[in-house]
């Protein structure tokens, strides 16, 4: 049997049935339906906005985790990709007059991918702290360019406000803001999130994903197995950048205003924070981390002006007690533990 081709072809009907009944897939379907219906059922604009926000950052954290969780590189420059995604959308709309959402999203991903390739090419030779600092410095360079309005595209620290994109020729941007978000844009983000999950789930279980794990686990061995490790680190940076760029592009429309702050290192720090909070050793951890981060931020902001302190404290406790498993990995371990005890008794 030839298995060089993707293996969906020879999947048996029974396997397909098993796949459909798979707990995780079923859970995902239920969650998707619930999220899709939420705005229409509750008509709660505040919650819808918060969920849209969470989903954007969930995509960013998932993309970031390719580099940290799978390839084992700690990047402190992912704001560059997020910000590039945002600026691409706003500049393409303002300067080039492109209004179609699909085109804008694709452009943003490509632009972020190019930035990822450049930053990656300059940094993948380094390791650990040097990699972190180099990515940080290169991203900061973009921040300075945007803040100083070099090239006259970004309007400096004032930033640029953006209008709402259309979709497949439908002038949906003419709808009122809350209808645009609750009836349309929220669902675009939702679909993008689930598409990202599906694609990454597949890619990270492919020979490519295994190759990234080989590099994370033991570079010497990976190279001595004939893997050009620098090239694969670069691939992982580009893939990661494209997904984070998509997140930035989606987010730009939600906030409606793009400033250099999104290119700043604190933004990179927040993405790292989310991944660590949810658990970098797990596939879904980054989503939990992004949700936790944003909900925590909302709650803390409402209660105290010292919200940074609250966030820091939570991350401190989570990392100290759960380490790379994060909240999600920790919860999984707890459930396994409880099941074991139940089986024992």
């Amino acid at each position: 049997m030839s298995t060089r081709l993707p293996t969906f072809g020879d999947m048996k009907a029974q396997e397909l049935k098993g796949l459909l009944l798979d707990k995780r897939l079923l859970g995902g379907g239920v969650l998707f339906a619930a999220l899709a219906l939420y705005p229409g059922l509750t008509m709660n604009a505040y919650h819808t906005r918060l969920l849209a926000w969470i989903m954007c950052f969930a995509i960013a954290a998932l993309g970031f985790n390719i580099v940290l969780g799978y390839t084992g590189l700690l990047s402190f420059g992912h704001a560059a990709f997020f910000g590039t995604g945002m600026y691409t959308v706003v500049i393409a709309m303002e300067s080039a007059g492109i209004t179609d959402l699909i085109v804008l999203l694709v452009l943003a991903m490509l632009a972020a991918g190019v930035v990822g390739a450049v930053i990656g090419a300059l940094s993948v030779k380094t390791h650990e702290i040097y990699f972190a600092l180099l990515t940080l410095a290169l991203a900061q360079l973009l921040y300075v360019l945007a803040a100083r309005d070099v090239g006259g595209l970004t309007r400096g620290t004032d930033g640029i406000g953006l209008s709402r994109p259309d979709f497949l020729g439908i002038p949906i941007s003419e709808a009122p803001a809350h209808i645009y978000l609750m009836g349309f844009y929220y669902h675009v983000i939702l679909v993008c999130l689930f598409a990202t999950i599906a694609v990454l789930w597949l890619v990270l279980r492919s020979p490519f994903g295994l190759t990234l794990k080989m590099i994370r686990e033991n570079e010497t061995r990976a190279e001595m197995s004939g893997v050009p490790i620098l090239r694969y680190r670069l691939y992982s940076m580009v893939l990661s950048a494209m997904i984070v760029g998509l997140a930035g592009a989606l987010y730009a429309v939600v906030v409606g205003h793009v400033t250099p702050e999104y290119l700043d290192w604190t933004m990179s720090g927040e993405i790292v924070f989310m991944a660590l909070l949810g658990g970098i050793g797990t596939f879904l951890g980054p989503i939990i981390g992004a949700s936790g981060f944003i909900i925590l931020q909302e709650v803390a902001l409402g209660v105290t002006t010292y919200w940074h302190f609250t966030m820091g404290l939570v991350l401190f406790v989570v990392v100290l007690t759960l380490r790379e498993k994060g909240i999600w990995g920790g919860a999984k371990a707890l459930v396994d533990d409880l099941n074991e005890r139940r089986d024992d008794s």
Binding site: L5, P6, R205, S206, P207, G209, L210, T211, S225
Partner: peptide, 17 residues
């Protein structure tokens, strides 16, 4: 997989190869 230089394969599952 590395010997077969299949590290590039993105859309297939290793546990079904």
């Amino acid at each position: 997989l590395s010997r077969k230089q299949e590290n590039n394969r993105l859309f297939s599952l290793t546990h079904r190869d």
